[in-house]
Structures are given as C-alpha cells and as structure tokens.
Amino acid sequence: MDCKISEPIVGPRSEDILPASVSTAVKVVIVGGFGVGKTTLVGSVSEIRPLTTEETMTQAGVGVDDTAGVERKTETTVAMDFGRISLSEELVLYLFGTPGQQRFWFLWNGLFEGALGAVVLIDTRRLEDSFDVMGRLEERGVPFIVAINAFPDAPHYAVPELRKAMDLPESVRIIDCDARDRASSRDALLTLMRYLYSLNTTTTEPQ
C-alpha cells in the first residue's frame, strides 16, 4: 500500500458547529456572472466564513484551440462558494454562489434539485450576462427573483426600465440590493421567500 502523506483533515471551528438538534437543511442558490457579487452576498449573511467546494468537469469536444480541429478532452475545476445560516435549532439554510455562464451549467444538476429557489444577481453594466441564466432557470422550473447589485459606477435604472430591458414579466420580482450589506442581502433572501410563499399559496388553492 502506498503511504501518501496527506494534509490532516480539519473540521469546523468550535463556533461553526451546528447543534445536534438540526434536522432539516434547505438551500438557496445565488447565481450570476463573474464579479457580480455572489461571494460577497453569501459572506454578508453567512454565519460561517464562506467555504469552497470544488467539482471537476470533463468536457469532450473541440477545445479553445479550434484550429487544431481535433477532438479533445478538457478538465476544468470549478469552485463554488457557500455559506450557512442557522434559522432555528432544527432548521439551517445553505447559500450557494454559482457562476451563471453556460459552461458551468453542469454544476446545476445537484445544486438546483431540491433548492427552494434562486436569486439572480445582476450588474446593470452587464445585463446581458443574465439572460441565459434566467432562461435556464425557467426551463428547469426554478423560481427566482432578480437582485440588482448596485455598484457605484454602474448606471442606475428604475425597476420598470430594467424589467423592460430584460423582458421580464411582472410576476418576476426585481429588487435593488447591496451585496456588501448584511441587512440588504438578508432582504433579498426574504423577498425570494415571500415570492415562493405567494406561489405556494396561490397554486395550492383547493379546486
């Protein structure tokens, strides 16, 4: 047997330990383009320092260098940041930040299954980054809200203008948010929950 020296496994710090009574975990996904503030939002509301989990993706197909014209396999490692909020002695919420670009959709399988819903984070300088993501969420039937992360040098638009620019129906909630601010990030999550609640109470009405 080969003796490999591996780094010791270090578990959670004592202040990051969940009570033994926790029985239910739920998850919400924060999705958006690079640099839009996903990790910042997760960090703002998380009770633990955001952790990172990695997944490798093997893709067969034409590589970046398509002049070669050769079928090649590429292996990419994608990191996903996540945080945690204990909501009660029994219930805990996990928040996963995941990049929205199509090439990362392979991550979505295990991620969105069972998720309560998603917050699509948007930078108004790159609205178009979010179009594919929202289309994909719709396809998968994942309920979402849109949060505009206000960067100081980004143009500010009123919500109706943004709604029009993104061609979003009235039913999709759009809010302003500051991912660096704990209360603002918490409010984005609450907006998602209220939206889910409204979906739930309107569609489960007795026939």
């Binding site: 975990a25 219930l91 309560l116 929950m193 209220r194 609640y197 739930n200």
Partner: peptide
C-alpha cells in the same frame, strides 16, 4: 443522513414560514 427534502409532515408553506421567521 438527515435528508434535506422536508418530509410530508412539514408542508411547504410551513417550511417557508420557518425560513422567513429565521431570516427576520
């Protein structure tokens, strides 16, 4: 293992209320 999907004994609305309560 404690499964994440809430059991049928915990209706969705109740779960959402618990999440909202915790966030508030």
């Amino acid at each position: 293992a404690r499964a994440p999907i809430p059991a049928t004994s915990l209706p969705d609305v109740e779960l959402l209320e618990a999440v909202m309560h915790g966030l508030q």
